[in-house]
């Protein structure tokens, strides 16, 4: 075993061999899932709780399916974030879950660092399923698995991450993972949607798609939320699409065999053109969803072994 953490809270801080271990294990789950012969008893008697403080259908479903395929008892809890005191809810819920002796706790929260806070208060292994604008580690792992299976490698590839990097936890996790594994990572988007000092993460920053996509093996698009327009970070959806939306013309700047990725859910016509999103050879967006289940199985499997004190 090569994974040395009790939790999966962030990609930042993981060593290449830890990431490699999760990806290899996930790869084997892809084959098992496709053959229909999943190990239905690996997590028998274990309790997995999906604790979602923020709406999410696909991530929650993906974790639920992963847990069930491994035989865990899966419980979904959705906690409204509209309650006045979110923090109280968070720690009160943590105390409740601890009393229920949950083994694996999957958390999504709209506040950066909320899973870290929970991890300090519960005995379960905590998996960050997206926290604020901080990280979304399983998304980065499933993106890496998709890339690895399609391209045969990760190291040395050129990857353009495009759009609202400022508010994207997916971008942060991907930047950490892909730079750790030796990729050439570029971030592309308007200056108002770029986090401060992002270049210090070992990425190159571009403000136009032509330069940013040049020679890219992978074009990873990010979701642009409508709220960014009301805060004047970009003037309008049509202007955004004109300069940073992925269409055939802009895709042509990338390599001929560049793959198109998107973490979903997509805003068609805002950050990505429908024809591109559904491109039969180049778009791997549906495959990302399939990889998501396998990656989450690998994470649950790994964290449930040895109570997270693997090989230490």
């Amino acid at each position: 075993m090569f994974y040395r953490q009790k939790h999966l809270l962030a990609i930042e801080g993981l060593a290449p061999d830890e990431i490699g271990h999760l990806l290899e294990l996930a790869d084997s789950y892809v084959l098992l899932n496709r053959s229909g012969k999943t190990q239905r008893d690996l997590l028998r008697g274990r309790t997995l709780i999906n604790l979602f403080f923020e709406d999410s259908t696909r991530t929650r479903t993906s974790f639920e399916l992963a847990g069930k395929r491994l035989g865990a008892d899966v419980i979904n809890m959705s906690v409204s974030t509209s309650s006045v005191n979110k923090g109280e809810t968070l720690l009160d819920t943590a105390a409740t879950l601890n009393a229920m002796q949950c083994d694996l706790l999957v958390v999504r929260h709209d506040q950066s660092g909320a899973p870290h806070l929970l991890a300090r208060k519960v005995d379960a292994a905590v998996i960050n399923a997206g926290d604020g604008t901080h990280e979304h580690p399983t998304q980065a792992l499933l993106d890496a698995l998709t890339i690895k299976r399609r391209k045969g490698r990760i190291e040395g590839l050129s990857i353009a991450i495009c759009g609202d990097v400022l508010h994207s936890r997916v971008a942060r996790s991907n930047i950490h993972l892909l730079t750790t594994l030796g990729c050439d990572v570029r971030v592309v988007g308007p200056p108002t949607l770029m986090p401060a000092d992002i270049a210090s993460f070992g990425v190159r920053v571009f403000h136009n798609m032509k330069d940013g996509l040049k020679g890219a093996d992978i074009v990873m698009m990010l979701r642009l939320q409508k709220e960014r327009m009301t805060r004047s970070l970009v003037p309008s959806a049509r202007e955004y699409f004109r300069f940073w939306g992925l269409d055939a013309e802009k895709l042509a700047f990338a390599k001929d065999d560049a793959l198109i990725m998107h973490p979903g859910p997509m805003n068609r016509g805002v950050e990505i053109d429908s024809a591109i999103a559904d491109h039969p050879e180049r778009s791997v967006i549906k495959e990302q969803v399939e990889m998501g289940v396998a990656v989450r199985m690998a994470v649950l499997d790994t964290l449930s072994r040895g109570d997270g004190r693997n090989d230490v």
Binding site: T133, I198, F201
Partner: peptide
């Protein structure tokens, strides 16, 4: 404070 630390933690920064 806006900068690499705030960016890393995904916290809204103040320049």
């Amino acid at each position: 404070t806006e900068g690499d630390q705030a960016t890393r933690l995904g916290l809204p920064g103040i320049p």
